[in-house]
Amino acid sequence: PATAPAASPGPPYFNQETLQQRFQMLIDSARERWTYAIFWQSSVDMASGNSFLGWGDGYYKGCEEDKRKRKAASAASAAEQEQRKRVLRELNSLISGAGSSPPDEDVEEEVTDTEWFFLVSMTQSFVNGEGIPGQALFAGSTTWIAGADRLAMAPCERARQAQVFGLQTMVCVPLGSGVLELGATDLIHHSTEIMSKVRSLFSFNSVEMS
């Protein structure tokens, strides 16, 4: 996947700890089963001066498929699984310090499609209105895509990728300094309840966020 461009440091639009709390309050208490939430932060590319959306933070709750696929054969090929595990081992070493201790057993467990989709998201970015997150920010309106067929037909590589990895619902809500994306392996139709929660939890300005 493409690597996100170097971003200007910019103002601290959010505090990761409070953002995590907001993610959890939103997803853990929701009537629907959301798999993850991601905040795409609006930043400026230092080289070109163009604005783009890059990884801000995310919360991966998981889904039933995680449990099933770790017990049964994975949908991914053996070679694909091996590559995912290799990347996970390297990331684990990066975080815990290479060679400091033997790798945890969990690193050798199957990396499910939705876990992989979430991990890959950390490397992605969207310039000026591109992709579902970029379009939502540009248009200033929420994009709600429910259904694997609709994701597959969306004019956005990320949406199509989401469908390939088993997601059925993707929602992008523009916020002041970025976009909140929600994803689910369940089919979730528009919910005024979740939108109301998003508004109450994330209706901040840059001063409140920093």
């Binding site: 995310g58 991966y60 990066l94 467990e109 979430f118």
Partner: peptide
């Protein structure tokens, strides 16, 4: 992985930690 910017390390560390919990409780 070497190119993972510092800002994403916290997200990654949190994901790996939560994954460990999910795997052990499965």
């Amino acid at each position: 992985p070497r190119a993972v910017p510092q800002a994403r390390k916290a997200s990654l560390a949190r994901f790996l930690e939560k994954r460990k919990e999910r795997v052990s409780s499965a």
